[in-house]
Design a protein around this nucleic acid. Structure first.
Lengths: 139, 139
DNA sequence: AACAACCTTATAGTAAGCTATAAGGTTGCA
DNA sequence: TGCAACCTTATAGCTTACTATAAGGTTGTT
């Protein structure tokens, strides 16, 4: 841990440091993902290293496939609203099953579409197009 | 092919027949995915079997992973703006590569998240949670 | 003092694909 | 004739995660 309250940054510096747009940081604040930071006399937001950690947490969680809403829950857990690691595990598992369901959908699409594309090579006449045929045919 | 102009349906009947909401049918019309149908004297839309075919085309294409915008392009092709099946093939291939890219993203997420979830079993203390650790650790 | 480059807020727009609501006209049947 | 169940339009709202714009205040440098 860096010494607390040592670094002081404007929103632009935090944005730079975390490769996030300043607008996005304000947006996360409005959404309750980032605490309202202290302000200078002229009402500028002041951030420190903890803010960098927070924001990095958000970016990592997004990469892993959590939505902003999921991340709020994760933060609640990290901040001690919940005591058991198993609760996070369960939460991550539910997100995992959503990801897997989404993958299954895409796999089915991929299969159908790639097989259609492969059938295309046979003829270049539009009347024989297997893709249009599939889309139009009666069940 | 059914005899043309034989069947006459209201929007509700078309909706029923294609398992689509009537609102959605009007929405597709506004988006240019369905032609403006003829109207009765009292301004009710009148549909026929061609409309069923059109709408079924849209639903199938959606299932295969085309967006509504993609579908407009497909329809342009089907309606004769383009003559070569290879053009549809190329279009389908570009959609296919988007689907595959999306799948690759999800696969990476799935891998990370499932490995984290598997590490969870070791301890139930929140301080040891591998998920929170991963999200918070410095690079 | 001038000026760019920052910061502030509020508000609205984007993408995609609907879904809901209001306020009214029409049809079909008892 | 009454009434439900349809139909019509226009308008606004939903979801997610921003992004843009306007209109203004502050900071730092020359």
């Amino acid at each position: 841990m860096e010494p607390k309250g040592r670094t002081r940054m404007t929103i632009g510096q935090l944005a730079e440091k975390t490769a996030t747009d300043a607008q996005t940081i304000r947006y996360y604040e409005r959404q309750g993902l980032l605490l309202d930071p202290p302000r200078t006399e002229s009402n500028y937001r002041v951030y420190d290293e903890n803010s960098v950690t927070r924001l990095t947490f958000i970016k990592r969680a997004k990469e892993i496939g959590f939505s902003l809403n999921d991340i709020k829950v994760l933060q609640g857990i990290a901040d001690g609203e919940v005591r058991q690691c198993s609760e996070i595990q369960a939460f991550a598992e539910s997100r995992l099953s959503k990801i897997r369901a989404h993958m299954a959908d895409l796999t089915a699409m991929e299969r159908t579409l790639s097989s259609l594309v492969n059938q295309c090579a046979l003829s270049d006449k539009i009347e024989d197009c297997p893709i249009l045929e599939t889309l139009t045919e009666r069940e």
